[in-house]
Design a protein around this nucleic acid. Sequence first.
DNA 1: ACTCTATATTGCATCGAGGCAAACGCCGCG
DNA 2: CGCGGCGTTTGCCTCGATGCAATATAGAGT
Lengths: 335, 335
Amino acid sequence: MGSRRDVARAAGVSVRTVSNVVNGYAHVAEATRARVLQAIADLDYRPSELARSLKRGRSGLIGLVLPELDTPYFAELTRAFVEEGASRGLTVVIDQTDGDLERERYLIDRTEYGSLFDALVISPLALTPAHLDAISDDRPLVFLGENPFPRFDHVMIDNRLASRQAVRHLFESGRRRIAAIGTKGTDHGSSSQRLAGYHDALRDAGLGESESIVEHVDRFRRADGAAAMARLLDRPDPPDAVFCFSDPLALGALRTLATRGVRVPHDVAVVGFDDIEDGAFSTPSLTTISPDKRFIARTALGLVERKLSGTAESAALVIAPHALILRESSAPSRP
Amino acid sequence: MGSRRDVARAAGVSVRTVSNVVNGYAHVAEATRARVLQAIADLDYRPSELARSLKRGRSGLIGLVLPELDTPYFAELTRAFVEEGASRGLTVVIDQTDGDLERERYLIDRTEYGSLFDALVISPLALTPAHLDAISDDRPLVFLGENPFPRFDHVMIDNRLASRQAVRHLFESGRRRIAAIGTKGTDHGSSSQRLAGYHDALRDAGLGESESIVEHVDRFRRADGAAAMARLLDRPDPPDAVFCFSDPLALGALRTLATRGVRVPHDVAVVGFDDIEDGAFSTPSLTTISPDKRFIARTALGLVERKLSGTAESAALVIAPHALILRESSAPSRP
DNA sequence: ACTCTATATTGCATCGAGGCAAACGCCGCG
DNA sequence: CGCGGCGTTTGCCTCGATGCAATATAGAGT
């Protein structure tokens, strides 16, 4: 590939004129423009985005750091970010941590120590605010998810409220033995908030702590949901409704219920969380909490731009909207 | 954040000395080093990776362009690339196209016209070689997947052979009515090769074209596999084995079989393709073709480095190894 | 002919870092 | 006292592109 200088020499003009042609500057003679374009084509020249970025002081690259990509929720969120970024002239590139603390720290440190990215949007799993003590809050970092990171911009949904609404819905549709599938012991994040919402709703309904039925899982996948549901059905007092902390868990539960010949929603109602595409097409289709992924992406990128433009006064905490999507899996059993 | 110049001023040294300290150059007096480090800390200075990359002529960023991220196979492949890249000092960033032609072209064009990425590894869905006529084969592009792109480096597995082995295995374990689930009308890629392998195996087994049973699907997801399996079971002459063109399809088929009370592998054997994690833990566990994802990632990045170093003489075509992983879903029915 | 303006083109400086080699200070040695 | 050598520090240039302002050229107006 030829350089800018080669092009200038070949076209018999100065380097500056090449620049003018490339950038479509107004006052360039037609003949000159043609000669330069010809030279560009001959030498297979293309401007270095690296150099441009250096001059501009921005690369236009935003890193999106997620725990895992094969979780449908994150995959769909990724899509929202990429599309939303494109419409703002930002390129969103994705990195995955597997919830590994070291990797989360590494990626943040890299931004800290001057990477090619203008900013990072990160959904941490293992990271806690204490790990960020040494990190200046001038850094363009935007956090997603439920763990609070006080000094930084943050976009989350109200997990506790959403869970409460989901469980209230089950109660209002006539269920009385409502189980939850989903806490993990180590998780200090969304699980505990969703659990809190579950307990809120039981309390609202006048049910005591003793009537809570919580089934733990290690991961939030179909297989875990299926196994947890089987354990619930094997209890002497099986539930008539299940609130699952993720859609894949709920889809797994549906599978077990189908296998065991338990009718959904007639015998057991199921509600999930995340509103992934599969849930809309399952049999029965899945009632779920739908976080507004578009809103999350738009807001997070807006915060990034605000930070980069220097207009930010203090860290923002944005609660993104969510909706309870009613589908077949939770239709009332007793009209 | 302070600049290199500010640091120099604060420490009372030249900019060059700051550079020497940062890069750990040998002959820097201890006192000077300390003063510079102090200034760096005070001013929260960190070197610009952008400027470094410009000087070096490399950014260390490799783009990995995939059709979709929520397909487990691609998610696992991504992991292999990210890890393999890290071990070579390359940062692999991911972009997704949804199999959209325009997006695939756009991403390649961006590299063509000087992006921040050193190279692109791309698994195209819609793109055909004709779209690349205008693209110089000097570009550091490495292709993945089954569609041939003659002038460029390429890593693929032998889909046809792998399929043939999978179907032969079904035949050898006593099956005689072997169906395939998976072609899509529009796909010019892996589907047609897997279909060819399926027919190869039938021919090997002395079964005629008339005995092939092919069930089409629109996408390669669980739900599609479940629906296709249901159609197969509803035929007057249901199969005793199914070769699915992807693991999610196979997992969907397993679900339908379970729901209908068909025993696997006793009544129907199932084989998938891709070796995704879920398949190893399903009930029954899934026999599948396992492409060597590590190998693919390692080789593709190797080709990238070869291209970037300029040692490449001509385009390479690498066939990555695969293995037939035998699990419960295809144990012999007639010993 | 001479200014004035509009169009075309260019040189220089700059972004932030690093390669290169010169130049500095200081020591010991002849 | 002068010189070679070592450790230390620095200036200058380059990477590739662009902002700024100056300059060159042509044509129009009086």
